[in-house]
């Protein structure tokens, strides 16, 4: 781990001021950043601890929910309103990591967590464009069973590792950001980037910009939502494929639907094509499967991950079917 200076902020203003120092990074629970610093993949010269900032979970005037970036994963998962109004978020959080890590990790930190690509983690032994831009990607032709089938580029085939973010993508969440230049909001689905030729730039966050809160808009559809994670062991493993979905029926027809995929792309993958294909259609397994197919039509398998296409299609179908059965 490189040496660094440490400062703790109690207010957002302080955090931003402290972070103006060159190379500063905001530190949440540390569950990802400390690990990456220990691997010397991250080498910040200074850390600004933002766990003292808002961790509040409160209703908005519009009937939604606002969650402070410092809220612990476990606190969000456990919150009564999250459990009842946005069950997909609770489910996704509870499917991630372990009880101990959920007690440490923050909302903001989880959003900022980086890929688990083995070649990214292999600091000195493998090439990685994300770690060292322009170096090349050893994952593309390497061990890529865990890697992306959607939206990848020749520069990077890594996936986003978060479960929580897949739920936020499906909930139409909005991120509130603040920088010395002021505040702005970004739709959650636009926050993370596809790799393109600059896989090292993973989000639209600007240098020194801080995640303040995440807002979940009021939406009745979210009440009927869930999350399903498919992995290599029963617990405490990253997703091969995960599906977050919300469904509202009108009679036997899909009135509205939200669908997002995890483990398949460089960002939480909102499945807009599938949603489009489903609205107004009969809620049948055949239609669910067809919608999954529409979403996955551009999927490009790598050497070891072709199974993810079928797995994603099956899981989407099953999750939507489960929600449809609940609704009927």
């Amino acid at each position: 781990m490189n040496p660094f200076t440490y400062a703790r902020a109690e207010q957002a203003e302080d955090a931003l001021k402290l972070a103006e120092a060159q190379g500063a990074r905001f530190l949440g629970g540390g569950t990802n950043l400390v690990d990456l610093m220990r691997e010397t993949i991250e080498r910040p010269q200074s850390l600004v601890d933002v766990t003292g900032l808002s961790a509040a979970i409160e209703e908005t005037s519009a009937g939604g929910l606002r969650i402070g970036a410092a809220a612990r994963n476990s606190a969000v998962a456990e919150h009564r309103l999250v459990r009842t109004l946005y069950p997909v978020l609770s489910r996704a959080l509870l499917a991630g990591a372990s009880g101990q890590i959920r007690n440490m990790a923050t909302l903001g930190g989880n959003i900022m967590q980086r890929t688990r690509c083995a070649y990214f983690y292999d600091d000195d032994g493998s090439r990685c464009n994300k770690r060292t831009p322009g170096q090349g990607c050893d994952a593309a032709e390497g061990f890529n069973r865990y890697h992306a089938i959607l939206g990848a580029s020749p520069s990077c085939v890594a996936t986003h590792a978060s479960d929580m973010c897949v739920a936020l993508a499906v909930l139409d969440a909005v991120i509130h950001l603040r920088s010395p230049r002021g505040e702005r909001t970004v739709p959650f689905v636009d926050f993370h980037r596809l790799p393109g030729e600059t896989p090292q730039v993973e989000t639209v966050l600007e240098p020194g910009e801080l995640i303040l809160t995440v807002e979940l808009p009021a939406n009745p559809i979210a009440k009927r939502s869930t999350y399903r994670k498919v992995r290599d062991r029963s617990s405490y493993a990253f997703a091969l494929v995960s599906v977050a979905a919300a469904l509202e029926l009108d009679g036997g027809k899909v009135k509205d639907v939200r669908l997002a995929l995890g483990g398949v792309a460089h960002k939480p993958w909102r499945a807009l094509r599938a949603e489009e294909a489903l609205r107004g259609r009969e809620a049948t397994p055949e239609n669910f499967r067809a919608a999954a197919g529409a979403e996955l039509i551009d999927a490009k398998p790598l050497r070891y991950n072709a199974f993810k296409i079928e797995l994603a299609a099956r899981t989407i179908t099953a999750v939507l079917q489960e929600l449809a059965e609940e609704a009927q």
Partner: peptide, 22 residues
Amino acid sequence: CGACTVLADGERILSCLALAVQ
């Protein structure tokens, strides 16, 4: 692995991922 689990204000955490200063 969880071998480093301790309680912080009664909540279980992983002390290996926790910077002491925090």
